[in-house]
């Protein structure tokens, strides 16, 4: 009908074509040995996309096992960050004194280089899932807290006055006005968090692990299994994209009213 809403094909065709083109070029360059020659490498160090695909299929059970380990670390760490992040955001929202006192520490938590703290956490918590979950949680915590806190403060003064005039207590204003206003912000923070959570899990595994895609990548790197390194990377990327898309879906369903002060639109 109208040209305003492009059809499914029209929307997806350009990016798909671009990906196909890039993969095709890569395939060609790898097959003919251009890249390897240009970098003075042996051919097997530069796998073609077809080779990576074959590796993905041939190693499917090994990759799946390790992907499951990493996914569990990501989900657990994200869940910890979500619960802790929302609780702390609400606390800081309700107490300006606490907010002033602890905000610098929350920002500082983000400034800590994960590569530095990861080995320390392994020393403290051992080789199990603990340190990985802690690292993922640490990475996810910041965008969730900051976004939720911003969201809780978004409802404007007049809106708060109306609640007060209608007889709302502080608690009811929080649950009826501020929390729903903050929800879109929380979810957009969660999307950022989940996208970087996978990186956190990989760092955690690099610092000491006996399973997981990050662990496998490190192992394969040492053994020059380059095709499988790429295969693991593809799975990690797919994991991040899928989790992000799932949260975007939740956002559309659960917080369809979007960001901004409620009732402020004209």
């Amino acid at each position: 009908m109208s040209a305003r809403q492009p059809s499914l094909i029209a929307r997806w065709l350009p990016p798909l074509l671009l990906v196909a083109l890039l993969l095709g070029l890569w395939e060609l360059a790898a097959q003919t040995g251009w890249i390897a020659d240009a970098l003075s490498l042996r051919d097997y160090l530069v796998p073609a996309p077809s080779e990576i695909a074959t590796t993905l299929w041939d190693n499917r059970s090994l990759l799946a096992e390790n992907a499951w380990v990493t996914l569990r670390e990501v989900l657990l760490g994200f869940a910890v960050a979500l619960v802790a992040g929302v609780l702390i955001a609400v606390l800081l929202h309700l107490s300006p004194l606490m907010r002033r006192a602890s905000y610098p520490f929350i920002v500082a938590s983000q400034a800590i280089p994960i590569v530095v703290i990861a080995p320390v956490l392994v020393v403290w918590f051992g080789f199990g899932i603990g340190p990985k979950v802690a690292i993922v949680a640490l990475i996810c915590f910041f965008p969730i807290v900051v976004n939720t806190l911003d969201g809780l403060g978004t409802a404007d003064e007049e809106q708060r006055k109306l609640m007060r005039s209608l007889g709302a207590s502080r608690g009811r204003t929080l649950t009826l006005l501020e929390a729903p206003t903050a929800l879109p912000y929380l979810l957009s923070g969660a999307k950022i968090a989940v996208a970087v959570a996978v990186i956190g899990a990989v760092f955690g595994e690099w610092s000491g692990a006996d399973a997981g895609l990050g662990y496998l990548i490190r192992l394969d790197d040492g053994n020059l299994e380059v095709a499988r390194v790429f295969a693991s990377t593809v799975i990690l990327a797919a994991m991040a994209v899928t989790l992000f898309a799932l949260l975007a879906l939740v956002e559309r369903r659960l917080a369809w009213w979007g960001a901004g002060s409620p009732g402020g639109g004209r």
Partner: peptide, 8 residues
């Protein structure tokens, strides 16, 4: 108030 302030 002037704005309706309805909760969306």
């Amino acid at each position: 108030p002037q704005r309706d302030l309805l909760l969306p």
